[in-house]
Computed example of a mutant assay.
Amino acid sequence: MKAIVYTQHGLPITDPNALQDIDLPMPLAGPNDLLVEVRAVAVNPVDTKLRRGVAVTEPRVLGWDASGIVRAVGSEVTLFAPGDDVFYAGSLTRPGSYSQFQVVDERIVGRKPANLDFAQAAALPLTSITAWELLFDRLKVAEGGGEGKSLLIIGAGGGVGSILTQLARRLTRLTVIGSASRDVTRQWVRELGAHHTIDHTRPMGPQLAALGLEAVDIVISLTHTDQHYPDIVEMLAPQGQFALIDDPATLDAMPLKRKSISLHWELMFTRSMFQTPDMIRQHELLERVARMVEQGELKTTLSEHFGAVDAANMRRAHALVESGKAHGKIVLAYA
């Protein structure tokens, strides 16, 4: 089967060897696995981080967002059958989705929304899982709850922010403020349902004050947390909640003590990496997301289609993600 791999970490994405087209053997499904014919993939910051920073001794297939068709199932599979259309984010401990076929545990797979094509569906899994787990599993916000409270999403125009904004607006009563650095991304965030938008390249406290907010109850930081951390501590209300997903070099929790601020970290791969007893929760929430999309309550966050799945197009996609100028999700598809 055809696949895209990296064989040497740290190469600039302008180097043709940063991502390469190769042929690999067809993978075999284990007892709980689906063998999926991949039809579309989306690109995430985790893809570029691993390519740049994780050394390999053999070709590694990246990619943690896909949609496709089940072609075979393992002996213990009960949730899906050959021919089913699915979408999923996969596991960091297994080969990724930049390949024509992939094996994935059924417990982290959902039924593809029937009203989306494969490219539109591929934009959703990783960001939907991350956003859902942040809001409902880590921060324990109740569906329909949050009346009188506020949520600031830093980096709301990105992939996770685009879903998180929608979920917070549709499933909670929180006042949602989204930060974005450009006019086009602030407009995008407003269209997704944010009550207010601010610019995180300028001091955020005065912008919140201009909206009549002295402090916010919850801050979710999705990008450049190390740069925004002093502002975050200042903006949060006493007994507020702070959550993040990125990788600051260090994070000193001591400044949170004075206000009794709780700290929450989200990694959507935790359940699959550790095979947690509640791993099937990701199947369940993807099924919920699919229903919400079909009912018009959520929309795909696909923003750009980069054409066929090949190394040249994938290098272009990585370059845009690394530029920090992408909004929504970049998707590539097999013909």
Score class of each variant (00 low, 15 high):
Asp137Thr: 05
His228Asp: 10
Thr250His: 10
Glu143Trp: 06
Ile154Cys: 08
His318Pro: 09
Arg94Tyr: 03
Lys112Gly: 01
Pro82Gln: 14
Gly307Met: 14
Thr201Gln: 14
Gln282Ser: 06
Ala326Arg: 11
Glu58Val: 03
Arg316Asn: 13
Met235Phe: 00
His224Ala: 13
Arg51Lys: 06
His195Gln: 09
Asn17Ile: 01
Asp217Met: 10
His318Val: 07
Pro45Arg: 03
Lys112Asn: 09
Ala114Lys: 15
Gly157Ile: 08
Glu143Pro: 07
Gly96Leu: 08
Val331Trp: 05
Val5Ala: 07
Ser179Glu: 02
Gly90Ser: 13
Pro25Leu: 05
Gln207Ser: 10
Ser150Gln: 09
Ala42Ser: 15
Arg107Gln: 13
Gly240Asn: 10
Ser97Arg: 14
Ile177Gln: 04
Ala253Gly: 11
Gly193Phe: 05
Ile154Gln: 15
Arg182Asn: 07
His200Leu: 09
Asp23Tyr: 04
Ser128Arg: 00
Leu79Asp: 12
Ala42Met: 09
Val70Leu: 06
Ile280Thr: 10
Arg202Asn: 09
Arg170Pro: 01
Ile330Thr: 13
Leu34Cys: 15
Asp199Ile: 03
Arg288Ile: 00
Val109Met: 03
Pro31Gly: 05
Asp105Ala: 11
Trp188Val: 07
Ile4Tyr: 11
Leu116Tyr: 12
Pro238Trp: 09
Leu126Gln: 12
Leu92Tyr: 02
Asp33Met: 06
Ile218Cys: 05
Leu151Glu: 08
Thr185Lys: 15
Tyr6Thr: 05
Glu106His: 05
Leu167Met: 12
Pro206Thr: 15
Leu286Tyr: 07
Leu263Met: 13
Ala215Trp: 01
Leu256Cys: 12
Glu143Gly: 01
Tyr98Met: 04
Ala114Leu: 15
Met1Gln: 07
Ser181Asn: 08
Ala308Met: 04
Glu58Leu: 03
Met268Cys: 08
Pro230Arg: 10
Tyr229Gly: 05
Val70Glu: 06
Val321Asn: 14
Arg202Tyr: 10
Glu147Trp: 00
Ile280Gln: 12
Val41Asn: 08
Phe136Val: 08
Lys49Tyr: 10
Met254Lys: 06
Thr93Val: 14
Ala114Trp: 09
Met204His: 13
Asp226Arg: 11
Val46Ser: 06
Gly90Cys: 14
Pro16Gly: 05
His195Asp: 15
Gln282Met: 07
Lys2Cys: 04
Val103Ser: 04
Glu58Ser: 11
Pro206Lys: 14
Val331Met: 06
Leu192His: 11
Asp47Gln: 07
Glu322Asn: 12
Asp117Phe: 09
Ala180Lys: 00
